[in-house]
Write a protein that binds this DNA or RNA. Structure first.
Lengths: 209, 209, 209, 209
DNA sequence: AATGAATGAGCTTTCATTCAT
DNA sequence: TATGAATGAAAGCTCATTCAT
């Protein structure tokens, strides 16, 4: 009731709705969330949702798109184009983790909700989610390609992107249990783990891919 | 149609139902899947599902439990108790990836579905899912603890477990796109990546956590 | 069809629904009645019933409350506060019988349905039904307390209330078989029977309780 | 498990089933009670119920019949054919109340459950219930007809029968709240109340029926 | 621009009832 | 005689979606 105002311009209302929808979707999941809940959380009535975003799927699509864009922008903004590749990867990963830490709900909607296939989530939505993975993949690729010696394959880069996403997922779970963790420490940990693992296994498994 | 027989003993039917449910849940997700679909896929009628498993959630619970057990058994069977820690980790990871590769649907239900949706899944189910993560964590911990020098913290071990899960997720996506990949090559890749990453970043980031 | 209009305000529709529900409940009983039937009888669709009254039990509760209120009001309106106790009892009983005669279906729902079935009826509903009995009990008590000599115990008053309800039940059955009966004649009969019974048994059973 | 025996003669099994059914029906009501519950309470399997009594309605019918018979026998046995009419009424009423007190569950099934019309309860069942009312009515009639002066009409007698049933209903409710009450005291109370009422109202309402 | 009123379709769940052994 | 296995039918309830104002 507090923020419920009449006659707001369309753009503002739409953003309010998406904000509310992300909150609701992240809490209940796409199917459990009801349009009623979303409308309520946005402080408006159900028909407004349909007038503005067309359908429940439309609402979800809008959420995915907006948050994917925000995440990409954040990562890109953190990466200085002229920096050294390692530096760019480092900055990009940290920005990525930071975004996930700061926008837990967005990440949940973006990464965890959008997976189940055979859904009303159109291919379009699936692709939006992919753009994020691709961005990270590209970051990894560019960080290694320039260097001599260790050219990384596309496949390996994709694996690394997924690993990063896995770490991000872990991060979302920890923010509740370990409030002392920060994105920076997580980035450090991940790198550090790679180092440790490398030292251990290098002799044991001589060649790798 | 081939094996579909009437009047099967309870135990058999129950397993058939769980098999079918995993298939359906992995395709549509918990909420989108309907009990009717599951019954149809199992070649029986809806009431049987309720008579044997009690409720839709009961069906899901049964799936999670059975597959978690199978996965754990598989991993444990692969790990020779007397082998060297590194060897044990290597064998365990490979068995893990192999299971995921051989049982894509089970993994999707076990890992993706159980996270996605809100809260209807009882604590018991949540814990079943955790047992898998814990097993991997334990494997990592034991593989590093015995060695001098690089004692890994619990937190780091958990991160590694999540990373492994992330890699497993990646695996499930690849089986469709890259049929030439095998669990063994994936295991190699992951280890190799760690090595590469370590070489790259060791000088850049001296200490890590 | 005559009054069936679309887009009625909530209050009106709600009353229509309760009217219909009383009709249906009195005919089929709580459990046999289906929400679909009720909706049909009210000329609306099932979901409206749930939007407005929440659940089948909610519908029943609403019926009980409204009719209990109406019955109590009717009885109270008939009893002049300043009249003599006997006069008040007489007037109250007659109003009570009149209500039952005029609202057979309400009485059936109020008295017969609410007793029959197990426990799904919340305590609240049970109490609503009790209020009716208590009103009659109070009437009886006040009609006898003021007089010297024959103070009636609470227990006796409760028995009398039940007896009155039994008579009311009889009335509902007669309205089909004996259309010539009126509430007034019934009231007379009941009183008359008491007189006759008293004359007969006074010598036979000297003391009573 | 304790009483579950195999190969019992049909007659015994049937009675066991009816015993169990009365228990279940009185607790949950006809519609809420499930055949499964009844079978369980009887210590047998569902198909047995159908083999012996044909259908759920058949079970209910059987209960009604048996208990109506038992009640009628009890009342008839208590009434000495050669006693004075007042004495016969007194004895009959007391036996009636005693039966209700001793067989609360039977009375609930017999009187409270069987009312809702439009039920699967065939006319036959309805008539069984009526036989009880008629027996009491007859008792009242015979107790007054023989006496000079106060011939009671059939209608009045029916009203009295219903009143007695109302009192019996009250009795069932009291057995839980007032364990000190006995059928005999209730009989006394009812008679006593009639006397009191008569004294009060005779002068006030000169005419009666 | 905004909403209260209304619904078609579908879901989970239950139950009386039968079949095959 | 006795029962585990199995189901058709229907009920309660919810939800995405539209209409009329």
């Amino acid at each position: 009731m507090s923020t419920k105002q009449r006659r707001l311009p369309r753009e503002v209302r739409e953003q309010q709705m998406i904000d509310a929808a992300i909150r609701v979707f992240s809490r209940s999941g796409y199917h459990s969330a009801s349009v009623e809940e979303i409308a309520e959380a946005a402080g408006i009535s159900k028909p407004m949702v349909y007038i503005y975003l067309g359908s429940k799927e439309g609402v979800f699509t809008a959420c995915i798109h907006r948050e994917a864009d925000r995440l990409l922008e954040t990562v890109r903004a953190a990466v200085e184009p002229d920096a050294a590749p390692e530096q760019r990867l480092w900055a990009g990963l940290q920005a990525f983790f930071q975004f996930v830490a700061d926008n837990r709900e967005s990440w949940i909607v973006l990464y965890q909700q959008a997976r189940t296939e055979g859904e009303p989530f159109s291919t379009e939505v699936f692709q939006a989610r992919c753009r994020v993975m691709e961005e990270i993949t590209a970051l990894v690729v560019s960080s290694t390609r320039s260097t001599e010696g260790g050219l990384i394959s596309e496949t390996d880069a994709e694996i690394l992107a997924h690993i990063a996403a896995g770490a991000a997922d872990a991060l979302t779970d920890w923010l509740l249990a370990h409030p002392e963790e920060t994105p920076e420490t997580l980035t450090r940990r991940v790198i550090g783990l790679a180092v440790t693992a490398a030292r251990r296994h290098t002799p044991a498994e001589p060649a790798g891919a």
